[in-house]
């Protein structure tokens, strides 16, 4: 039987945490599975978790009137989905639709917040990792904005 702590230890996002920190996180974590086509969350809903993706693919989308849902970005194996639980008003900004069947680790947002507040070392480690993901996401967004493949660009 796989313990949740072992799954946490296997995930690239958390690599480098110490035993105590893994134990703390295990208290906020549980396994999660979603089928293709399911929405993990929707724009505007309360943001209550991060998902560490083990396998599968999630598409972050926004619905544009006249165009329908537009895929902005996909979250893949080894990446983390969702950080809106970090700051008020704790609302999801996009829809998260499962494209390829997803195995993930659910990390409860409120639980994470309280653990991070009471243990700043853990908080620093998590925020550092999240910031790296935000940084990469921002770079992608900038590139997509450039629209480099447009004819005549």
């Amino acid at each position: 039987m796989e313990t949740i702590e072992r799954l946490l230890r296997e995930h690239p996002f958390l690599q480098g945490l110490d035993d105590r920190q893994f134990a703390l996180l295990a208290g906020c974590a549980k396994k999660a599975r979603f089928a293709a086509g399911e929405y993990i969350f929707r724009e505007g809903q309360e943001a209550n978790a991060s998902y560490l993706v083990r396998t599968g693919r999630v598409s972050l989308e926004v619905n544009v009137a006249g165009r329908g849902p537009v895929q902005l970005h996909t979250v893949e194996e080894g990446e983390v989905l969702g950080w809106s639980w970090l700051y008020p008003p704790y609302r999801w900004q996009f829809d998260a639709r499962v494209v390829e069947p997803l195995w993930a680790i659910f990390l409860d947002g409120a639980c994470l917040r309280s653990k991070c507040e009471s243990d700043h070392d853990l908080g620093y480690e998590l925020v550092k990792r999240l910031l790296r993901q935000v940084h990469q996401r921002l770079e992608r967004a900038r590139f997509q904005l450039l629209d480099i493949y447009r004819a005549g660009s």
């Binding site: 693919r57 598409s59 989308e61 329908g68 895929q71 970005h73 996909t74 390829e100 590139f143 997509q144």
Partner: peptide, 20 residues
């Protein structure tokens, strides 16, 4: 760069593919 509703592959930039 931008997916459509029936696209099942990754959405992102070419260096994302390279990284993985």
């Amino acid at each position: 760069d931008h997916g459509s509703s029936n696209w099942r592959g990754p959405v992102g930039i070419i260096t994302d593919l390279l990284a993985t």
